[in-house]
């Protein structure tokens, strides 16, 4: 029965034009960056710009990672916050929530189906970005001989075989998806609290912006390890040699805690609240 409900939610997602417009917009940014890089052949100065962006000038197969580093801090979380914020509050605003609940659809079950749909959106978006970036990277960027034949260079300067690069890229994409699951859980919680989807999305973004700001503040050192966005860019560590698991593992655990806490709060709130829209 939950399966049927998930199918319904996925079908709503796929049939919504906004889904595809959002994905296209997110994909547009790394595409633009690739075109500009190919046109000017100018990388960012060391220490500035997103990770891997200077490396793609020599090795185009790294562009999916640079694309990930471009969309992960801002674009992707905004899209996920809007999509997940829509989940309950959007149905409530449209008036369809009450009809779903009297159909009847169990409230817990609805929450699960919504989460699955949001994650499907995340997976789809990340894969579209990665594939587009790979194609662009191979076609437009990098030194052809390096891109086509040579082993890739790890962040630590050693060589990575194609299989290793693929495996690590897969891990990085999975890690980014997990970070977005955390955003989805927060937004889903706000979606059960707020009256409007916009309110839910803004609440989520407020948390993410505050977290990003505190990370740059030395005075907030003590709380930094607990901020949701603290370990988001740790996927770079997967490309060091040997892989530095420390921040990645912490990131996974931290995101897990956020997911459990916010989903729990969302569940407790949604299953006990009066639906009065």
């Amino acid at each position: 029965m939950t399966g049927a409900l998930i199918r319904v939610e996925l079908s709503k997602l796929v049939r919504s034009r906004r889904t595809w417009v959002t994905i296209a917009l997110i994909d547009a940014l790394p595409t633009l960056v690739a075109l500009l890089l190919a046109w000017t052949d100018l990388g960012p100065r060391p220490g500035t710009g997103p990770a891997f962006l200077s490396a793609v000038l020599t090795d185009g197969t790294l562009f999916p990672l640079a694309a990930l580093a471009i969309v992960l801090p801002l674009f992707l979380p905004i899209a996920v916050a809007i999509t997940a914020g829509e989940a309950i509050a959007g149905e409530a605003q449209q008036g369809t929530l009450r009809y779903l609940l009297v159909r009847p659809v169990g409230r817990t079950r609805l929450l699960v189906a919504k989460l699955v749909a949001v994650m499907a959106f995340v997976v789809l978006t990340v894969l579209v970005v990665a594939v587009t970036a790979y194609v662009l990277g191979v076609l437009l960027l990098g030194n052809e001989t390096v891109t086509a034949t040579g082993p890739a260079t790890s962040v630590s300067g050693s060589s990575m075989s194609t299989a290793e690069l693929l495996g690590r890229t897969g891990l990085a994409l999975g890690y980014a998806m997990l970070c977005m699951l955390c955003v989805a859980a927060i937004a889903l919680f706000f979606s059960t609290v707020a009256d409007s989807p916009l309110g839910a999305a803004l609440g989520t973004l407020a948390i993410l912006v505050a977290s990003t700001l505190l990370i740059t503040l030395d005075a907030a050192n003590a709380v930094q390890p607990y901020l949701p966005t603290r370990y988001w860019l740790a996927f770079v560590d997967l490309f060091r040699d040997p892989i530095l698991w420390r921040d990645v593992v912490r990131g996974v655990v931290l995101q897990g805690v956020y997911v459990v806490v916010f989903l729990g709060a969302g569940w407790a709130n949604f299953t006990t609240k009066d639906v009065t829209d």
Binding site: A4, V8, K12, R17, Q94, G95, T96, R98, R103
Partner: peptide, 18 residues
């Protein structure tokens, strides 16, 4: 209440399937 961007038939199908 219904999903405005979908047809009436599609809306009923979603309600029925959920």
């Amino acid at each position: 209440a219904a999903y405005d961007h979908l047809s009436g038939r599609r809306n009923l199908a979603l309600v029925d399937a959920s």
